[in-house]
């Protein structure tokens, strides 16, 4: 059963390496070189990396502060505001796509990194995740700091942040993986080949080399490998993210 889950990946790598005819004798690494030369993959890689790292950092930043406010501070209308935040999760992404595209076009940001990144900088599910985490850690230390006259910002920076390294890493890793996979918004927000992310790039390659399967599998492998590596390295953060959501 587990083999069934992995088989498509093995088949992908096999096709990329061995070519289409299943002659298992010769390996063709040149398939990779040729496929990767067929499009500016270096550029796609760089774009994907810039996009997902910037968004992940931004989401960690905005989510930490917002989650802290929702988890720890009392202010009028807190629960109502939190419900409003959560209701954003119900909105289908596609509903916002056209207006967001018009918005970044009006700002002159169409087909730029600003345009690509700016709309994604807040993640409500990230806020929810970190709020769960903050609710779970004891507040004794914070209260002690408050008693000693520390302001909220100091408490946040000196007491809360140092304890929440693992949670921030979890959110960062999840956001990174999420954005690396992101396809729809980059497809809409960018138009030139110079700005395309990997996902959009290989989807376009698919259009250009429709029946050249080894090429396509080589490109697919190139897109999958970074995430496999991330998953290998940061396996426990993926699982922690799931635990926090349940």
């Amino acid at each position: 059963m587990a083999l069934l889950m992995v088989a498509p990946f093995l088949y992908m790598v096999a096709t990329a390496l061995l070519g289409e005819g299943d002659t298992l004798r010769r390996v063709h690494p040149e398939n990779f070189a040729a496929a990767l030369a067929a499009a500016p993959f270096g550029r796609f890689f760089l774009n994907s990396a810039i996009f997902s790292v910037a968004v992940a950092l931004g989401q960690v930043l905005t989510s930490t502060t917002a989650a802290y406010a929702f988890a720890r501070l009392r202010f009028p209308g807190r629960d109502r505001v939190f419900t409003l935040y959560l209701s954003a999760l119900m909105l289908p992404v596609v509903l916002l796509l056209v207006p967001r595209f018009l918005l970044i076009s009006a700002l002159g940001w169409a087909d730029t990194y600003q345009g690509l990144i700016s709309t994604e900088l807040v993640s409500v599910s990230g806020i929810f995740l970190l709020r769960q985490f903050f609710l779970a850690i004891p507040r004794d230390l914070e209260d002690a700091a408050r008693l000693e006259g520390a302001g909220e910002w100091t408490v946040f920076r000196r007491v809360v942040l140092p304890q929440s390294g693992p949670a921030l890493a979890t959110l960062g890793v999840l956001a990174l993986a999420d954005q690396w996979k992101s396809f729809f918004w980059p497809l809409v927000a960018t138009s030139s080949a110079d700005m395309q992310v990997l996902e959009v790039g290989i989807a376009r390659l698919h259009g250009a080399y429709d029946l050249n399967w080894p090429y396509q599998m080589a490109a697919a492998t190139a897109a999958v490998v970074p995430m496999m590596v991330l998953y290998w390295v940061a396996h426990k953060y993926f699982m922690r993210g799931i635990q926090l959501r349940v």
Binding site: A2, M12, A177, H206, A220, T221, A223
Partner: peptide
């Protein structure tokens, strides 16, 4: 191993399955 498809690129997955 079961979790692998969840972390891999959707476009890549679609391409592989199209081939399969």
């Amino acid at each position: 191993l079961f979790f692998l498809p969840a972390v891999s690129s959707v476009v890549a997955v679609a391409l592989v399955w199209r081939w399969m």
